[in-house]
């Protein structure tokens, strides 16, 4: 079970700035395991979707070159307190995680 997604939202007028941290190793496939001397296989989030009140607003495809424990910031327009903001990811091994919170 992957570690929980963390999200911080700041509301300025009707614009919500959403900062997201997604704990994930984001293995590039280029690193060698120092113990076995073997390449560590690629393991990375390849698809991220953000939603506002259940509607998709941002659909991202990523490579293994996004940093470990990915950080993502985006801005939603036409938002207000009580709205729901969600983020979901899926990685190249089929693991997935999601998180939804309410704007305060």
């Amino acid at each position: 079970m992957p570690e929980a997604i963390r999200m911080r939202i700041t509301l300025d007028g009707d614009v919500a700035s959403v900062k997201v941290l997604m704990p994930h190793p984001m293995e590039s496939g280029l690193r060698t395991d120092p113990k076995t001397n073997e390449l560590i296989p690629k393991h990375f989030i390849h698809h991220v979707v953000a939603s506002h009140n259940g509607r998709t607003v941002l659909d991202a495809q990523w490579s293994q070159a996004v940093s470990k424990n990915p950080f993502l910031e985006f801005r939603l327009r036409g938002t207000r307190a009580g709205d729901k903001v969600g983020v979901a990811w899926e990685d190249n091994k089929g693991e997935a995680n999601s998180f939804e919170t309410v704007i305060k």
């Binding site: 509607r55 607003v57 991202a60 996004v66 993502l72 801005r75 939603l76 036409g78």
Partner: peptide, 10 residues
């Protein structure tokens, strides 16, 4: 609904 803005670490 989303602004043409993203921040990310690479």
């Amino acid at each position: 609904g989303v602004d043409p803005f993203v921040a990310v670490r690479i």
